[in-house]
């Protein structure tokens, strides 16, 4: 009976000691290593670099908006280069970020295109940009052959796109690249 009591007391003391040791070890660990965030930092830095790289890879961006400007899908694999960009949405025509014409019922009003085809404000804006380009590149006005990048909404009727093309040709922009969403990677 006495022996059993002694053993229990000894065991209790041992268990207490062990618990104290464990607690001490736990506390010590917390104090030494506050939080291992180095690996997390590495991962975040990689994600940041990837995002920054994908952000700046295209020379121009096309802000797509539902029911306003949704560019068509295509199997084309060609990449864009920097040139004058013209956006034809369901409500307006924007050239290099500046709105030049308002569109009503997917068409141009007779005020904006007095002779039926050439859009006056668009022509003026493209003339300005052409003159700036001629000055910057120091080439003769006769030799100038500009390139334009056209981002148009899928539902735009061809007549409107044709009016823009004809106006651009009048301003000596003779080659066009139509913006598309790639359906094939590359």
């Amino acid at each position: 009976m006495y022996n059993n009591d002694l053993r229990t007391a000894e065991e209790e003391a041992m268990a207490k000691k062990l618990a104290e040791k464990k607690a001490a070890r736990r506390n010590k660990k917390d104090e030494d290593n506050p939080l291992a965030i180095t690996s997390l930092m590495d991962a975040l830095t990689i994600i940041l670099i990837f995002l920054l790289k994908s952000y700046g890879s295209d020379p121009m961006s096309v802000p797509q908006k539902k029911n306003e400007l949704m560019i068509p899908k295509s199997t084309s694999m060609s990449n864009m280069v920097e040139c004058v960009d013209i956006q034809i949405s369901r409500t307006s025509i924007v050239v290099k970020g500046k709105k030049v014409v308002t569109i009503n019922n997917l068409g141009i009003s007779s005020q904006d295109a007095p002779n039926g085809y050439i859009i006056k404000n668009l022509k003026d804006r493209l003339d300005d940009l052409r003159n700036k380009e001629i000055e910057a590149k120091q080439i003769s006005a006769k030799k100038f052959q500009g390139e334009a990048f056209i981002a148009a909404d899928t539902k735009i009727p061809w007549k409107l796109v044709d009016q823009v093309l004809k106006t651009a040709v009048r301003a000596r922009y003779l080659r066009f690249s139509f913006a598309i969403v790639k359906t094939r990677g590359g």
Partner: peptide, 23 residues
């Protein structure tokens, strides 16, 4: 990261090159 994720475009924009008939 959330800022870049929101502003980045993940669709790839390409082009189709065309001429005017006159050229």
């Amino acid at each position: 990261i959330p800022f870049l994720l929101l502003s980045a475009q993940f669709i790839q924009i390409g082009i189709i090159l065309v001429d005017t008939p006159r050229k």
